[in-house]
């Protein structure tokens, strides 16, 4: 449907087009996605229902009766690279307690064996970086985190599991993330957090927002249970700090 130097406009059915920036996880590319989202929302094209940013693309959902697809596709080609490359995102870091391994993380041994590492080393590598939240998606409040160490990158399960408990922390390829609600999925599960990442009665209903930093820290099972109790009684406040770099 037409390409620019930065992106391709792809078909996503009869009520969606996908503006794809390429098969890559990078801050630079993700910034273009969010800048295009802002540019489109300012233009207020009639017939757009919503836009959904991902790592690498922006999905534009539309009402075919009211949306001029040809005009929009042509217009979007004119977005200049300086518009796509601008903007410094707001930065906060949320600290997430995780109980790694055992029944909370049934695939931790697999991940360790796959890389010839000890489980302790996998935990250490996973809980060290400040991850960047590129997008929310998949299920309510699911934060896709970038910045995982290549040494623990592990392929997905070939047959997805039918039910993964809420709070499960997983690895899929070069990505890591947390399942906010019970759902099917193919990620390798290495641990679980007692925090409630999605709560429809809260404002906002999600705990991690796009653009935030996220840090995991290991906690023993008894500490997990103690935090879980505080979360259930509404007494737990997650630790949120300001991000210093950039």
């Amino acid at each position: 449907m037409g390409d620019s130097s930065d992106f391709r406009v792809l078909q996503g059915g009869d009520n969606c087009i996908i503006i794809d920036f390429g098969e890559e996880i990078s801050m630079g590319l993700n910034r273009k996605v969010h800048n295009l989202k802002n540019w489109i929302s300012k233009k207020q094209y009639p017939g757009i229902i919503e836009t959904v940013p991902t790592y690498r693309s922006l999905a534009v959902y539309f009402d075919p009766d009211k949306f001029d697809l040809k005009y929009f596709s042509g217009d979007v080609q004119k977005v200049e690279p300086p518009i796509l490359d601008s903007f410094p995102p707001e930065r906060k870091i949320i600290h997430i307690p995780v109980s790694y391994g055992n029944h909370f993380g049934p695939d931790l041994t697999d991940v360790a064996e796959y890389h010839g590492l000890t489980m302790e080393k996998v935990i250490q590598i996973h809980s060290r970086p400040i991850y960047h939240c590129y997008m929310l998606g998949f299920t309510p409040g699911f934060a896709y985190l970038g910045g995982m160490d290549e040494r623990i990158a592990t392929p997905r399960l070939t047959e997805p599991r039918k039910a993964i408990p809420s709070g499960s922390v997983g690895i899929a390829g070069h990505q890591t993330g947390i399942y906010p609600i019970e759902s099917p999925g193919g990620w390798k599960i290495i641990g679980r957090t007692p925090l409630k990442l999605f709560d429809p009665s809260a404002d906002p209903p999600v705990m991690i927002l796009s653009g935030w930093g996220v840090r995991f820290y290991p906690v023993p099972t008894d500490k997990y249970e103690a935090i879980k109790e505080m979360v259930l009684s509404g007494r737990y406040e997650p630790e949120i700090t300001a991000r210093e770099d950039r």
Partner: peptide, 17 residues
């Protein structure tokens, strides 16, 4: 596997199997 992307209604996904 792809880098995660939006899933429109009626998308036909084909996993590894």
């Amino acid at each position: 596997d792809i880098i995660s992307d939006a899933i429109p209604l009626g998308a036909v996904q084909i996993p590894g199997h």
